[in-house]
Amino acid sequence: MTDELRGKKVAILATDGVERIEVEEPRGALHAAGAETELVSLHDGQISARQSDLEPAGTFPVDRQVADASVNDYDALLLPGGTMNPDQLRTDSDAVAFARAFVEGGKPVAAICHGPWTLAEAGVLSGRRLTSWPSIRTDLRNAGAEVVDEEVVVDRNLTSSRGPQDLPVFCTTMVDQFAKALQPA
């Protein structure tokens, strides 16, 4: 275990339909680096996870509702994918405002798979370079982003990856970028 993120708190913004592995592996990497994580969602209780969007894959307990969350309580944001998860988040004004505040505030954000959909809705992708799951790339381009097909892309405070196949490099890059961004000035 390393300590490069010790004392840092990362919000994981997700709801029902989240891709299980896209929560578990990044969360594990964050914890291994010493960070604390909180699952922030649209409702309290638990959210249902999926495997490959199709199969039920258990649940995750919710730590805080996004309507009650403050960006000031967190150092960074993780946006996992799964098709249903960000499709619901992007229709919730509190979730969209929460994601927007991280990007506009210069705090580090990591998004994988369909996760960037919420950022497109937040209107923060114009002039940004990123990657995602192939099926949402047109939406991201329409939001003003330069979209590329690479396993991981870093553009200022935004780290993005295409999907579960990229989790090893995504997790390493996310921890490195969060640590770099959160070093004292």
Rank of each mutant, 00 (worst) to 15 (best):
T138Q: 14
A95P: 03
V23S: 02
I12P: 05
V124H: 13
S93L: 11
N157P: 04
G17L: 14
Y74N: 08
L42H: 08
Q177V: 07
S41Y: 09
T15R: 13
R20A: 11
P184R: 13
H114C: 07
T118W: 02
A101E: 13
T15C: 15
V153C: 05
F60N: 08
E22A: 01
S132W: 06
T2F: 10
L39W: 01
A76Y: 06
F178Q: 07
V124M: 06
G115E: 09
G82M: 10
K107C: 02
R100N: 04
K9R: 15
R6Y: 03
E104S: 08
S41N: 08
K9I: 10
P116R: 12
C171M: 01
H43E: 13
G82N: 04
V62P: 00
N142I: 03
Q65T: 03
R64D: 01
V109K: 02
P56S: 14
P26D: 05
N142V: 01
F98L: 02
L39I: 12
E25L: 10
G163M: 11
D75F: 07
S41K: 08
G106H: 07
F60K: 10
L54M: 15
M84W: 06
E150D: 10
R20L: 07
S70W: 08
D149F: 01
P26C: 07
F178L: 10
T131F: 03
A181W: 05
A33P: 05
Q177C: 09
A99P: 06
V40F: 06
K107D: 04
E36T: 08
Q177H: 12
D176L: 04
T159W: 04
V10T: 09
A14G: 14
E4H: 11
V154E: 11
S41G: 10
C113I: 02
T37G: 00
F102N: 06
A97M: 00
D3N: 15
P168K: 10
V109Q: 06
R162A: 04
D68N: 15
R50Y: 06
T138H: 07
A14T: 12
A122R: 08
D16P: 09
D94G: 01
P86K: 13
F60Y: 13
L79D: 09
R64I: 02
A35C: 01
G17N: 13
V109Y: 00
D63I: 10
A35H: 05
T83C: 01
V147S: 05
K9S: 12
D94Y: 12
E36F: 02
